[in-house]
């Protein structure tokens, strides 16, 4: 006679089987939701992923960071004025660990001349979860791409096409026309103080620099103008960091030539610049890039003909602001 299994043991084994089935389900979901899943207009924050829709090795300048990056730098304007291609890979309240992941992912597809790292995210305090989240996202892509459900079409899964991702016409820039003035104007008072980086953040900055160097790309720090988020103590910390790693650093908060008017050029009392502030900052920043890095003018390059059509969409999106100026 066959011996019956202990009922308690059987229960525990069933429980373990369920956990394994749940993990298998997450693996299965990752087949449907991953980097190659078509169309991501529906992604909650399409901006950073939109770069994946760009043909490989076509972007000259990449800018990484949090909301400061996508509200300040306009790649279409830089193309129009200076003729190089750029993309802003950023998302709101981005943690530096996520920036690190985005840099790795982006440089696997693009070979830019220069990578700018907006510095605000360096000071965002991380929880123990952030590196764990990045690891989980790498193992199970569904945790990163689950928001694709919003436009999910099973018929397209794993089709071998190039345009998996929604091609972001503003190239990662976010157009904000709201005017909400800032009263704080003397936020960059010189001081010898330093604002320390939160623990473990520097290791991610180092990792980003190393990734760039490994790919033969020059990393540069840039601080976007913000009366709320930026001050001289942070400037000093980043200056030290730049020296330590031998990286160039431009703090746009100190570049008075930009001509920002905080009573008009911000959408949220100085937290971010609005479209008007972005236009001024981008003009200045584009000129800085042009003068400091050898970038070809591609406006007559037939391979970049699509970039010459971007201004139409850009004009359409920003049309509303003309009446406000």
């Amino acid at each position: 006679m066959q011996k019956k299994m202990n009922p308690t043991l059987k229960k525990w084994l069933l429980g373990i089987a369920f956990v394994m089935a749940a993990v298998a389900m997450v693996v299965l979901l990752s087949v449907f939701f991953n980097e190659k899943t078509p169309d991501t207009d529906a992604l909650k924050d399409v901006k950073p992923y939109g770069l994946l829709a760009e043909p490989d090795d076509t972007i000259d300048v990449l800018i990484f960071g949090d909301s400061e990056a996508f509200s300040t730098f306009s790649p279409v304007q830089m193309w129009e004025e200076y003729g190089f291609s750029s993309y802003v890979v950023s998302s709101a309240s981005q943690y530096i660990s996520l920036t690190d992941s985005f840099v790795k992912q982006s440089l696997a597809h693009q070979k830019p001349k220069v990578v700018f790292l907006e510095t605000n995210a360096m000071f965002r305090k991380m929880t123990a979860d952030k590196p764990l989240e990045s690891t989980l996202e790498r193992i199970f892509p569904v945790f990163q791409y689950h928001n694709l459900w919003k436009n999910f079409d099973p018929a397209n899964v794993n089709e071998n096409e190039d345009d998996y991702f929604w091609n972001n016409a503003l190239k990662g820039f976010k157009y904000i026309s709201i005017v909400n003035p800032s009263k704080k104007k003397d936020y960059m008072k010189a001081t010898g103080k330093r604002k320390p980086l939160p623990a473990s953040n520097e290791s991610y900055v180092e990792s980003i620099i190393n990734t760039c160097k490994k790919h033969g790309v020059e990393p540069v720090f840039v601080s976007a103008p913000s009366t709320v988020n930026w001050n001289y103590a942070k400037h000093n910390t980043v200056t030290d960091l730049a020296k330590k790693y031998g990286v160039k650093y431009i703090d746009l908060n100190l570049e008075n030539a930009i001509g920002l008017d905080w009573s008009k050029d911000t959408c949220d009392r100085g937290d971010h610049v609005n479209y008007f502030g972005a236009t001024k900052t981008t003009a200045y920043f584009g000129n800085y890039i042009k003068n400091n890095f050898e970038l070809a003018d591609r406006r007559n390059d037939p391979a970049y003909s699509e970039w010459n059509t971007l201004h139409e969409k850009y004009a359409e999106v920003t049309a509303g602001s003309k009446s406000k100026i």
Partner: peptide, 27 residues
């Protein structure tokens, strides 16, 4: 029975993983 409750539990897992408001862009 197990063939009813397991799919219910599994649905809970899948629902949360797919429809959770987490990841880049969500705070």
């Amino acid at each position: 029975p197990i063939f009813v409750r397991w799919p219910i539990y599994m649905l809970l897992v899948v629902y949360t993983v797919v429809f959770g408001a987490y990841g880049a862009g969500y705070i």
